[in-house]
Each structure stands twice: as C-alpha cells, then as structure tokens.
Write a protein that binds this DNA or RNA. Structure first.
Length: 209
DNA sequence: TTCCAAGTCTCTCATTCTTT
DNA sequence: AAAGAATGAGAGACTTGGAA
C-alpha cells in the first residue's frame, strides 16, 4: 500500500503546531523532509509521528539541543508504534524521577533522591544563613552585618554554583542514558526480527528437505 | 547589560485552485 | 482564459525569557 502524503498545513494540524514551527524544527534538527515535484514539503505518517515525538519531548522540557542529540535514535526508529512511543515516554518519566512507588529503585529514582538531598541541604543552609543574618541585625552592628553579609553572599554563590554544576552534569548524564535506552531498544527489535527471519529460513529449508 | 535559544511575524514571490 | 484567493517557500527582523 502507498504511504499517504500530507502537506505542511495538514501535518501542522496533526502535530498541533504552526506550520512555521515544523519548518523551524526541520531546520534546527536537520530533518530531511522530502519534496514533491513542486518543491513543496510532504510528510508521511512516519514524519508526523516523528514530529509528534519531538513535540512530546519538548513538552517534557527537553530543549531542541537535547532533542537534536536524540535524533539519530528517533530517526532510526522511523516506524514508531504506539508501544514505542509509550516506551520512550516511560523512559523519560523514569529519567525525570517520576517513578511509581511499586517500581524497583531505578537509577532515575536514585537521582531524584540526590536532588531531594540537595534541596534539603539547601534548605538547611538557608536556615543557618537566616539565623546568622538575624543575629547580625539584632546586634545592630553595622560593620559586623556587612562582613557577615559579604561572607554569606560568597557562600551562597559558591553553593549555588556547585549545585548548578551538579544539576548540569546530571542532565547531561540523563540525556546520554535516554539515548542509550533508545538504541538498546531498537537494537533489541532488530535482533528479534533477525531471529524470526532465521527461524523462518530454517523451517523452510527443513520443509524442502 | 549582553548574549543566546527558541520561536514568531512579516514580506515577497511562485504555484495551484476556484470562480466568473 | 483571466482574475483573485489560497497555500507554500524562503529570508530576515523582531520578541521573549533565561543565563552569564
């Protein structure tokens, strides 16, 4: 059966974005959209699905930069089924540490705990700082107040810098993990297909004999 | 304040479709 | 067939929000 072709306006409606957004994503993510004899883009169901995946990732807070790094994975799996999409979504959910309680402790959950720990640490830090500043004000010692404030500022900046660096490192790690999961999943599919094919061939040969 | 990412808007031109 | 509307392309300026 021939694959259906959609114009950009139809595709935009299906993906639920404006047509210029599709053009923008195409350019930014280096997606090679086929053209008809008029030079107009046409989108197949595969591309519609791909753009839906991209939109899905965008909604989960992924930047185009991050999505771009996942493009090889997304492109390899051109015929994503509903289950695939589910798998991807689940992976993202896990990676975002939204795992349900009954699920075993995943790396994402551990990561979440680290985040919580960092937040608690930050909260404690804030309380301590609050105490220091309050005391300084109570003492009404302007000089001391200034000194404390400057020390506190330095500490806050250092602490925030450290936490931000940690966060960035974790995010990068998360993107890598997600990409790896995608690749493994697709590899698994390919291997399963190859095994089925091999089995069929074996049966056929056996029958022939 | 400046820079950057991610859109968003506007303009012009080309092609196709519809109406008269 | 001609005119006008609709649709699409491409380019560049503009906006917005966040980070440095």
């Amino acid at each position: 059966m021939e694959e259906k072709h959609y114009m950009i306006s139809d595709a935009a409606k299906m993906v639920d974005v404006e047509s210029h957004v599709l053009r923008y994503w195409e350019e930014e993510l280096k997606i090679d959209i086929p053209r008809n004899e008029m030079g107009h883009r046409y989108y197949t169901d595969t591309y519609i699905h791909l753009f839906k995946e991209i939109k899905n990732l965008k909604e989960q807070g992924f930047l185009l930069k991050a999505i771009k790094t996942l493009m090889p994975g997304l492109m390899e799996g051109k015929s994503f089924s509903k289950e695939d999409s589910q798998t991807i979504s689940e992976t993202i959910v896990e990676e975002n540490a939204l795992a349900e309680p009954e699920k075993e402790k995943t790396a994402a959950l551990k990561e979440h705990e680290t985040n919580v720990c960092a937040e608690e640490k930050m909260e404690q830090f804030r309380l301590i700082l609050g105490g220091i500043v309050s005391r300084a004000i109570e003492d009404n010692n302007e000089v001391l107040g200034k000194e404390v404030s400057s020390r506190v500022s330095d500490s806050v900046i250092k602490e925030m810098d450290y936490l931000l660096r940690l966060k960035e490192e974790r995010e990068e790690e998360r993107y890598k993990k997600f990409d790896e999961v995608l690749r493994n999943y697709q590899k698994g599919n390919k291997e399963a297909a190859a095994a089925t094919e091999k089995k069929k061939l074996f049966k056929f040969r056996k029958k022939k004999k």
